[in-house]
């Protein structure tokens, strides 16, 4: 699993909400063809970190480098333009819109582009591109691009969000709890996607509470505690208990004794 060129480098980034220092001093690196799991207990600052990378709210300080270039991300559009696509927890799709309209939301193909936001959608291009995309990511040939998203299952929705990210992301895909509320089969579908994304040379950063998934797809874990990155491990060099110990900030041997006692 040789990692490629550097995609994202965060250097001592900070973020506060009033008096709450959600991110104090977080630094990390992510490379091409690499799956990094971002771990940490509730309130560790994981969501704040990825929301800042995806432009939902900007960092207060520190530096972001994307593909070696100093970057500034002030909104979702900036992040997308830098090739960073984020699949937010439960909020990625508009349920009342068709699959095709969702896939191209914010990047609609239009005819007469000089009309700006009033430009007519290019429905032929929209439907064709959506059909190609749905086939390419291997969801199902039967899934019609005109079907409304609110008729789909959770797993299907997640697949569509991921395939959209694959379509547009030049380099980095961020997933916030991608397997939350999914069934076993759907979860495997999502993990398979993550591997496909890595095989295609994209970088993946994902948040999860399910440490088993980490060992199934991740190359590296980054552990956060109280707004700081406190540890990094290659998955091949560590084990489940050690990672849990890192998340809780306790000694792995204590945790082992604890577990054995039960």
């Amino acid at each position: 699993m040789s990692a490629g060129a550097e995609i994202l480098r965060l250097d001592r980034v900070r973020k506060s909400f009033g008096n709450v220092h959600a991110l104090k001093n977080a630094s990390m690196v992510l490379r091409e063809g690499e799956v990094v799991a971002l771990l940490g207990d509730n309130g560790a600052g994981k969501s704040t970190l990825i929301k800042a990378i995806s432009g939902v709210h900007p960092f207060d300080g520190g530096e972001i480098h994307v593909r070696g270039q100093r970057a500034s991300i002030r909104n979702a559009r900036d992040a997308m333009d830098l090739g960073i696509e984020t699949i937010h927890q439960d909020t990625s799709l508009a349920p009342d819109l068709s699959i095709a309209r969702n896939l191209f939301l914010g990047r609609e193909p239009v005819t007469l582009p000089w009309l700006g936001v009033f430009a007519p959608l290019d429905f032929t291009a929209l439907r064709q591109a959506a059909t190609v995309l749905l086939k390419r990511v291997g969801i199902s040939k039967k899934l019609d691009a005109d079907v409304l998203v609110n008729t789909l299952s959770g797993g299907e929705r997640q697949s569509i969000a991921i395939s959209r990210a694959m379509q547009f992301a030049a380099k980095l895909i961020i997933l916030d709890e991608p397997t939350n509320n999914l069934g076993v089969e759907e979860t495997h579908g999502v993990l398979r996607f993550v591997r496909e994304v890595r095989a295609a040379g994209h970088g993946v950063l994902f948040i999860t509470h399910n440490i088993h998934h980490v060992f199934q797809v991740a190359d590296r874990v980054v552990v956060m505690r109280r707004g700081e990155v406190v540890a990094e491990r290659n998955v091949v060099d560590t084990d489940l208990l050690s990672v849990e110990a890192l998340i809780m900030g306790v000694d792995a041997s204590t945790l082992a004794k604890d577990t054995a006692a039960h």
């Binding site: 979702a76 937010h88 349920p95 939301l105 914010g106």
Partner: peptide
């Protein structure tokens, strides 16, 4: 498309740069 998306799921629309 933006209007419907905003009413359907505002956060999703904002996350797509709408």
């Amino acid at each position: 498309n933006w209007i419907s998306a905003i009413g359907s799921n505002r956060n999703a629309a904002v996350a797509r740069g709408v």
